[in-house]
Design a binder for these strands. Sequence first.
DNA 1: CAAAATATTCGACCATCATCGAAGTGTGGA
DNA 2: TCCACACTTCGATGATGGTCGAATATTTTG
Lengths: 242, 242
Amino acid sequence: MATPNIVEVASLIGDESRAAMLMNLLGGRALPASELARAARVTPQTASSHLAKMVEGGLLVHEAYGRHRYYRLASEEVGQALEALNAIALPKPVRSLRESDQSKALHFARTCYDHLAGEVGVALTDRMLELGLIRAEGRDYVVTTDGAKWFPDFGIDLDGIRRGRRHFARECLDWSERRHHLAGALGAALTNRLFDLGWIERVPGGRAVRVTRTGFARLESDLGATFEESRKGAKISESPSV
Amino acid sequence: MATPNIVEVASLIGDESRAAMLMNLLGGRALPASELARAARVTPQTASSHLAKMVEGGLLVHEAYGRHRYYRLASEEVGQALEALNAIALPKPVRSLRESDQSKALHFARTCYDHLAGEVGVALTDRMLELGLIRAEGRDYVVTTDGAKWFPDFGIDLDGIRRGRRHFARECLDWSERRHHLAGALGAALTNRLFDLGWIERVPGGRAVRVTRTGFARLESDLGATFEESRKGAKISESPSV
DNA sequence: CAAAATATTCGACCATCATCGAAGTGTGGA
DNA sequence: TCCACACTTCGATGATGGTCGAATATTTTG
């Protein structure tokens, strides 16, 4: 056949346990094998087997720290492929109220590989476009002259980012909003900054993200970004909790 | 689990026979079950089973014409997911000289869903951008005032296309060139026109496309588009065959 | 109407592979 | 050194699913 090994890649993703692990890693962090085993509800032996296959297949990479072994997605492209598959997956049957809540949380804000996605990610990107901080150009975003002033003020080192060999700022289409948001090195840096500032925080045990009370206030006052009131109340958290 | 049925979709693609069928359908045309069975080198029974599963899974749709049943990709998103998977697939081992030729032909020119991709597709799009006939705007292309004159002259009914509910002109990233080219309704219309004019023609048994002798001449004289000389010689065909 | 072509369903066979128990490797701490 | 912990490898088991032969619609052709 003239086809590349798309079959291998797809069949790796097409397993319940492995998909569960990949979805957890789509949060962007590197996770130890034991936690991935727990996430997929399989024994460590089974998980180890799966992880080895996914490394072999080019989906994951691993780093050893002490007696732990951390796994993460091999590249940005892997994350994009996972999102693309999500986009064509049939609407999921919601099984419980708890799952419905988690689903809403995911739609509202989540990490996609290492940048912000969901309603918040899209709204933030839209707002930066409206303010003329960035501009869409093909599949990439470019920082405008206004943006070249704003980003450093916000605590983001543009030159440092540019020195890396990673894509500077790409468009990423997400499955829930079906619209674009900022990805690439700039998207990751912005997201990290938001975490550092305490405007957003991770929801433990998944890739959902919560916007904090200060986050809502500052996003509105500094950027003029607004979100649906109904969801706002439900997602506010004053203190990090489990 | 909180995950959608990404597992089902991925495992559908993760089968040798089904992937072969999907790759053929990525050309954009609707193909009968028998031809897909031949492409995947399986019996009609097996193919029928696979096709039913892919329809069930939302990857394909079918239309009945007489005693034939034509299958095609269910949506543009499916094509994009396939391209995304191709992008992370490991570099393909070329097994034979014949396959190498086919691989080169695919890189040079092919249909992607229903528009032109490969080196030719990218070059054509670049040239239209340089001539100011179209302009990139976000993920879409828009027709300029110059373009509004040029396209009808070329035999393309812009108003007719706009009346459809399909995306007018989108960007599409292909895996071989890793660059953009014109897709959407306008891209499809342009490609059809090139077929009608006899500037390009399908290579039987695949999604590769051949640029005819007149095609090369007219693309160069009318648009100023040029291609690599080395490949040019190998791909010229004087008379439409089969 | 008969014969050929297209595509489907049913049933059986067989290979693949996910899973886990048991045992092994290597690291960290007392 | 001994033990606990994280992870891996090996081997056996069981289930899923791809494959094709045979039979069944349905439509086109002669």
